[in-house]
């Protein structure tokens, strides 16, 4: 399930795995998520790495802490995750577009014009 060949650090993959579980509804609001030990056992990884993945989600307010009990899913976890993924994905796509237009010698104005036209067309279609 994890990509150990290593395009992404394992702890990031762990946090993304939990995010997906939340999006799929496998962990619901106020559910307790797996402990670092359970995650370590599931994926054969060091528990410290698993803890780092959990902490990442805690820092992003996707999980909250209950002292001594573990980490639980925040009420707005789904929103935070979808927002985050939107940003990341969109940013990545735009970056590719910008790079490609550089390679093809498309000027900045030309590119912005293209995007605007495309948006207009979509609006027309939707009407």
């Amino acid at each position: 399930m994890l990509n150990t060949e290593g395009s992404k650090p394992i702890y990031i993959q762990i946090s993304e795995w939990i995010e997906t579980e939340i999006l799929n509804g496998n962990f619901k609001e106020d559910d307790k998520v797996y402990s670092q030990y359970k995650l370590a056992e599931m994926f054969t990884i060091n528990p410290a790495t698993a803890a780092k993945g959990l902490n990442l989600l805690y820092e992003e307010n996707i999980l909250y802490n209950k002292r001594g009990l573990g980490k639980f899913v925040s009420s707005n976890a789904k929103e935070i995750i979808t927002d985050k993924r939107k940003n990341q994905k969109l940013k990545g796509l735009i970056q590719e577009v910008v790079l490609e237009s550089e390679r093809l010698n498309v000027s900045d104005d030309e590119l912005i014009e293209m995007i605007k036209t495309l948006m207009e067309e979509r609006k027309g279609e939707l009407k």
Partner: peptide
């Protein structure tokens, strides 16, 4: 990394 990517440099992690 974004600045490098913008220059057309491919950025990839290095395995330990």
């Amino acid at each position: 990394h974004d600045r490098a990517t913008r220059l057309g440099i491919e950025v990839s992690p290095v395995s330990p």
